[in-house]
Simulated scan of single mutants.
Amino acid sequence: MTVDRAVLAFAGVMVLISVLLTTFVSPLFIWFTVFIGLNMFQSAFTGLCPAAMVFRKLGLKGDCATNP
């Protein structure tokens, strides 16, 4: 698995968890979903993604363009 795919999978899981928490625990967990969305948005423009940094340190390969 590449870093790109790991980040996408992680973001998807976190969004699903935040939706479940919002639905079943407290509506205030919607702010968790907002945080995830803002992080994804800023990452698209800055290239800075904390999750990608963590996955690289865990030993995952680079993105698809550099490591097919």
Rank of each mutant, 00 (worst) to 15 (best):
R56Q: 12
F41W: 13
T22C: 08
P68F: 02
L48K: 12
V34E: 03
L38I: 13
V19Y: 14
F41S: 04
M1Y: 11
F29E: 07
N39D: 08
A52I: 07
F29W: 13
D63K: 05
L58V: 09
A52G: 06
M53I: 11
F24N: 06
L20P: 01
T46P: 00
L20M: 12
G12D: 09
P50Y: 01
F41K: 04
W31F: 14
T2A: 00
Q42E: 08
I36C: 15
N67A: 10
T22S: 08
L21T: 01
F45N: 07
K61N: 06
C64Y: 07
G62Q: 02
M40I: 09
M14Y: 09
C64K: 08
T66G: 00
P50Q: 00
A6F: 03
N39H: 06
L21D: 02
L16W: 10
A11V: 13
I17T: 01
K57R: 14
V3Y: 00
I36A: 15
C49M: 02
F41A: 13
G12W: 11
N39Q: 10
G62V: 01
P68R: 03
V25R: 06
W31Y: 11
M14H: 05
V34L: 15
L60T: 05
F55V: 14
C64N: 10
F10E: 07
A44T: 11
M1Q: 04
L58S: 06
M1L: 08
V19L: 15
T23F: 15
R56Y: 07
C64G: 06
L38F: 14
L60M: 14
N67V: 08
P68L: 03
F35T: 03
N67I: 04
G62F: 01
N39K: 05
Q42Y: 13
D63Y: 06
L60W: 14
T66N: 02
V7P: 00
W31H: 05
G59P: 15
F55W: 15
T66S: 05
V15N: 02
K57Y: 06
V34P: 03
L58E: 07
V7L: 01
L21C: 03
V3F: 00
R5K: 08
P27T: 01
F45C: 04
R5Y: 01
T22I: 02
V25E: 07
M40L: 13
M14F: 10
M40G: 05
A65H: 04
T2N: 12
D4R: 09
N67S: 12
K57C: 06
Q42R: 07
F32Y: 05
A52Y: 03
T22R: 06
V13Q: 12
L28A: 11
Q42N: 07
G59Y: 04
A44Q: 13
F35I: 02
A11N: 15
V15D: 04
A51F: 10
C64R: 10
